[in-house]
Structures are given as structure tokens and as C-alpha cells.
Computed example of a mutant assay.
Amino acid sequence: MLWPALRVLSNGDLASHQFQELLGVLQLEAIPRTDGPGATRSVAHRALARDTSTRLILDLARTGTSGWVFTLFFDGEPPSTATVEAYRVLLRGTVEQFGLALVEITPAASADEVHVVPSAPGGAPESTLAPAWDLPYDDLSQMWSHLGLRRDAPREVKEIKLREVMSSPAWPAAPAKLRRQAESFLHGA
């Protein structure tokens, strides 16, 4: 089974010749991947050399008319941190080289790799329903995985994701213990 080790979401238009150049830069074959999650949206991929018992695949998929998803998949043991970081550098450079807008990188290593959903416009009507906290968490250490973060995620990434949750209408209904821990975390404690 293929699992994503690194996923880079970007947005932008590519002319046909730019798309072909991008495939060349990443040495991808214009053959869609046929297995693993998101295979139906795959447009190109390549199998990477194995340095351990892990199988690695670099994939390019489309989302909508101008969305691009670059994913490093693995089968077996997760790739080393050094391998993931090398592909992070390669894929960020590719996004920049082709003038694509970086939307998000998972797992995020810095604040600019976190996608923050824009808040509703100021004139949007408020819901008449009372906000509810439906999550079973009352401790901040339990909530990181729900936010798509590992416990060892960089602090700046945790801060952005936490602020996003705290700005939701449901936050005031969160357990008091969790709200205190979140405030303490954001104030450096």
C-alpha cells in the first residue's frame, strides 16, 4: 500500500510546453500512477531508486483546472527525514521555477507551508445555531494529530494551526482546560 511521505499542493496555469518541461525537470513519465490513494487524478509518475526496503514513487496529479499535487509516496518503511527534506527542496524549487503558487506542504516544516483557510467576510451573517465542540479532546497534546500534525511538528506550524482552530465559532465551546493550554502554548509556555 502506498502512503504519502510528502505532499505539495500548488496552483497555477501551465502551458503545454511548460508541462512537458516540468516532467523533464522531475524526470516523470507521462503515465498516470495506477495504485494508491489519488491514483485517478495522477498524470505522471516515476519509481525512485530504493535505498532501503522502501519503495518510493514521485507522483504528479491534477486537482481542478489549475491545481497540481506533487506527492512522494512510500511502500514499506517511511523514508528517512533526509530523503523527505531533499524532495521538499526539489518540489518547492520546481513550484517556484514554474511560477506556481504554493498552497500547502504536508507535513509542514515552516509557517509558509501551512494553508490557512480565509475567514468569512465581515458582512457574512452569523449562524443562529449555538457553536458546539464535537471533538473528544480536552488536552492539547491529544489535538495535534486531529490538526494533521505530528507531535514533533515545528512550533511555528503548530501555532498557525492552533490559531486557526481558536478562530472558529466552536472554540468558545471547547473544554476550559484545552482553551487554557492553547493560550499558554501561544504565550510560549
Rank of each mutant, 00 (worst) to 15 (best):
S145H: 12
A124R: 00
S141F: 09
A170C: 07
E159H: 02
A132G: 03
A120I: 00
P121H: 02
S167W: 01
L135T: 07
P154I: 01
S119D: 12
T128H: 07
E156Q: 15
L147Y: 07
A124E: 05
G122N: 06
W144G: 10
P121C: 00
P125S: 06
D138L: 04
T128E: 13
H146K: 10
D139R: 15
I160G: 02
E159K: 09
R155C: 05
H115E: 15
L149Q: 08
W133S: 00
G122A: 15
G122S: 14
P169D: 08
L140A: 02
K161R: 15
E156K: 03
V114W: 02
Y137N: 12
L129G: 00
R163F: 03
K158M: 09
H115S: 13
A132V: 15
E164L: 04
E126M: 08
L147C: 12
L129E: 15
E126S: 11
A108D: 07
M166K: 03
L135Q: 13
G148A: 05
K161Y: 03
A124M: 05
V165T: 14
L147Q: 11
D112R: 09
A109K: 10
D139S: 12
D152G: 03
A170Y: 04
M143D: 05
V117E: 14
M166D: 05
W144T: 05
S127E: 09
A109N: 13
E164M: 09
D138Q: 12
E126G: 12
S119K: 06
K158T: 05
W144V: 04
S167H: 08
A124S: 07
H146W: 09
V114T: 08
T128R: 10
G123M: 02
V165R: 07
E126H: 07
L162C: 06
M166C: 03
G148S: 02
E113M: 02
R151F: 04
L149K: 08
T128C: 04
K158R: 15
L135M: 13
A132N: 06
D138G: 07
T128A: 12
I160Y: 02
G123V: 01
P125E: 10
G123Q: 04
L140D: 11
L162D: 08
E164D: 14
P125M: 02
R151A: 15
Q142V: 00
V165S: 04
S145K: 09
L147H: 04
V157E: 06
S119A: 14
